[in-house]
Write a protein that binds this DNA or RNA. Structure first.
Lengths: 186, 186
DNA sequence: ACCGTTTGCCAACACTTGTTGACTAGAATC
DNA sequence: GATTCTAGTCAACAAGTGTTGGCAAACGGT
């Protein structure tokens, strides 16, 4: 049952192919056979090494926002820092795309998304503002703008948003995030 | 081939069940058999009346934003009017949910979403600002906030966003939309 | 009351899906 | 060098998918 180093290349290939396929096609349409073919491996190997398709997805969908500490920065710049960090983080990692593509139809993936939100984003914002009471709502608003941007740029591929340079996007949404973080409700 | 009024209840039941199922489960997981069962009809009837699952989806996913004329309103209130209208429109109609749930994995649905964006939102914004050059980018930014809100509230069901009253959400995102519509880029 | 059309039901097809088990080859351990 | 464990291959299963054609019943027009 415990696998040796000899199978490590195969396991890595499967996981890599899975991440790519899940990111491109979502959970349902990314078939075990297609993933195995991409990895140059027999479909039964996927089951042997990862147990089931669901467990493979669970491994492939691990994602950490790696939020920087915003409390040290000048108070007015938190929105800009956050926007720049998120965009940078998403450009290089499939994780967000994997989750976003399947969370719309799969309850497990949606729950995972909510968990990332509650465990990573909310505490950071609570620490930043020093107000735990309003932190969930503020984090939720940040999520609407952040996930909406990711959705339009990486998943829906809306032409004007795809065409924008990262700096340009950051310049537009940074004030939005800043207001959600520290502004007064309307 | 041309269907009579006698089958109208059945066709309406199928379309209604299809809209509900597609909105709840997305294209792939909403099976023809499940839709037919909800409608109290044989699966083969679905094919007879709608040709194929894809054509049924095409019918079920018809959606019109019904954007109000924003040019008449005071210039500073366009963001508020737009936010209120969109939220009101989404609360009552499955259409946006249907599209959003499947557009993340289905290219046809994504193209449909882009088409709604380009044909309904962009022209309205161009008329409002009188500047056709920046309209696509402004519309894209509006889409990131608008679709992000819909995603978090209706699809991902992020607790803080679900808990907010419509007025509260409008109050927060209206200034964002206002800036995207008429503000200067950063 | 007849006849053509439409409605609806039933069974089946062809295909793809995740998953399993048996079997072979090869490395590792003693 | 014999044995034990692991990596990998092959074929198959059971379930579920969209889709199709055949056939009985009910309706509408004449």
């Amino acid at each position: 049952m415990p696998f040796t180093d000899r199978s490590l290349p195969a396991r890595a290939a499967i996981l890599g192919a899975a991440r790519a396929r899940f990111a491109a096609d979502g959970y349902d349409r990314a078939t075990v056979r297609a993933i195995a073919a991409d990895a140059g491996v027999d479909p039964s190997m996927v089951m042997r090494y990862f147990g089931s398709k669901r467990q493979l997805f669970a491994r492939a969908a691990e994602f950490d926002l790696r939020l920087p500490d915003l409390t040290g920065a000048p108070p007015g710049h938190a929105g800009h820092l956050l926007a720049a960090h998120l965009l940078d983080r998403w450009e290089g990692d499939d994780g967000l795309r994997i989750l976003l593509r399947t969370a719309t139809t799969d309850e497990d993936a949606a729950e995972r998304m909510r968990s990332i939100f509650a465990r990573q984003l909310v505490p950071h914002i609570a620490a930043l503002t020093g107000d735990p009471a309003t932190a969930p709502a503020r984090a939720g608003l940040v999520a609407t703008q952040a996930l909406g941007t990711a959705l339009c740029r990486y998943v829906l591929r809306l032409p004007p948003i795809v065409a924008m340079a990262p700096d340009e996007i950051v310049g537009w949404i940074a004030p939005t995030l800043q207001r959600y973080l520290t502004g007064a409700g309307g």
